[in-house]
Simulated scan of single mutants.
Amino acid sequence: MTWINLGNPVPKQKFDKYIPYKWEISNGYIKLHEPEIFLPTPFSQVMFKRKSQRSFKTTSINHLSYLLWFTNRVKDYIDSDMGFPITLRPVPSAGAIHPIHILINSPYTDKWWRYDPFSHGLWPIIKENKYFLNVRKDCKDILDCNTASLILLVAEPKKTLSKYTDGTSLVWRDAGILLGNLALVSSYLDINFCPIGALLPKEIDNKRQLVTVGMAVFDAVEID
């Protein structure tokens, strides 16, 4: 076994300035609904019920909305000297940086969507879409996902590295925490959900600001 030592993360004495990746804004934004009623389900029941599912049904876009609202929405934020705000969300993140974007694809379309945690909505991906054309096909080598939606966790590592020396492991830990919470909330919402080990696509932008750090499949959602 070859173990890769990612170092010991330490906060920098002086933070580096980082300009976040600029996603192209286009028409087609979808505002998602916030949950109004919460099911009084004991947490222990959610924990006992959770397991990875490899068969998928059709679910409503509201279930997707609630999944994202419970796991990744921005509850509060403050400006920072790093060039981007630090945010309070339902899941923890090293330095409250939250460097990971959630991207979603429905089995009914080739279009990919990026979750906006500030506005709780979905933006269609435009200029990066070419990098995602083969993700669903390549996913078939691991799991039959023809009837499933796909989630990609795409990180901007330099956001975390702007604050931490040897901070790479923190990005991976953030990804694991987010993926685990997506799985738990899916159990609560009765969504079939399965994390997968692949990291697709291998390239997302030509400047390598973005990297895939997690993937999962879940019930089919018709987004548009």
Rank of each mutant, 00 (worst) to 15 (best):
M1R: 04
N5M: 08
N5R: 07
V10T: 14
P11M: 02
F15Q: 09
D16P: 00
D16L: 13
Y18C: 03
P20H: 07
Y21C: 05
K22I: 11
K22Y: 05
E24C: 06
S26W: 01
N27G: 11
N27W: 00
Y29E: 01
E34W: 05
I37H: 13
P40V: 07
S44P: 01
S44A: 12
V46N: 04
M47G: 03
F48S: 13
K51E: 13
Q53N: 12
R54Q: 14
S55Q: 13
F56H: 04
F56W: 09
K57H: 10
T58M: 10
T59D: 07
T59G: 04
I61R: 15
I61T: 11
N62P: 02
H63D: 11
L64C: 06
L64P: 00
Y66G: 03
Y66I: 01
Y66V: 03
L68G: 07
F70R: 07
F70H: 10
N72Q: 14
R73H: 14
V74K: 06
I78G: 02
S80N: 11
D81Q: 14
M82L: 14
I86R: 15
R89T: 11
V91G: 04
P92V: 08
P92W: 06
A94L: 09
A96W: 03
I97P: 00
P99E: 06
I100R: 00
H101A: 12
I102G: 00
I104V: 15
N105R: 15
S106L: 07
P107H: 08
P107Y: 09
K111Q: 15
K111E: 13
K111Y: 05
K111D: 10
W112H: 08
W112A: 12
Y115Q: 04
Y115T: 04
D116R: 08
D116N: 14
F118G: 04
L122C: 05
L122N: 03
W123S: 07
W123F: 13
P124Q: 10
N129F: 08
K130R: 13
F132Q: 03
L133W: 05
L133Y: 10
N134I: 02
R136Y: 09
K137Q: 14
D138V: 05
K140F: 12
D141Q: 12
D141G: 15
L143H: 08
L143D: 03
D144V: 06
D144I: 08
D144K: 10
C145T: 13
C145F: 09
T147E: 15
T147I: 11
A148W: 06
A148E: 03
L150Q: 07
I151V: 13
L153C: 07
A155F: 02
A155L: 06
P157E: 03
K158S: 12
K158L: 13
K158D: 15
K159G: 01
K159N: 05
S162Q: 02
K163R: 14
T165Y: 10
D166C: 06
G167M: 04
G167A: 06
T168S: 10
T168L: 10
S169V: 05
W172G: 03
A175E: 01
A175I: 01
G176I: 09
I177E: 00
L182G: 00
L184K: 11
V185C: 06
V185W: 01
S186H: 10
Y188N: 01
Y188S: 01
I191D: 00
I191F: 08
L199S: 07
L199D: 00
P201E: 00
I204C: 01
Q209W: 02
L210F: 04
V211S: 05
V213A: 01
V217H: 04
F218K: 01
A220N: 04
E222L: 10
I223Q: 00
D224P: 13
